[in-house]
Amino acid sequence: MTQKYRAAPAEDLIWHDLDSMKLLYHRPSGITHILADPAPAIFEVMEEAALAATEIIARLTALFDIESGGDAEEIILARLEELSLLGLVSRVPG
């Protein structure tokens, strides 16, 4: 079974641009995160759906100039795992 992920609800997140980075204030924890690409883009395409890494990559390539294939899935999976450790993304049984 494929691991799916769901982003924290939009109302829990406050975004702020800082040059090339994005600040993310997470209301339930009171913790401020500084995110570099591609993490903010991942949130943007996830909306509130439960998605597998491959689906997220498909959405990213449709929206941004990102090459699919290669190690894309590895990179996105690693970011998703980091985000889920921080409680910003939850793992949903697929």
Binding site: R27, P28, S29, G30, G87, S90
Partner: peptide, 16 residues
């Protein structure tokens, strides 16, 4: 109020 939020978050971290 903030301490309450943080306590609930910490409990949720342990739950996960």
């Amino acid at each position: 109020d903030l301490a309450r939020l943080q306590a609930l978050w910490e409990a949720d971290c342990a739950r996960r």
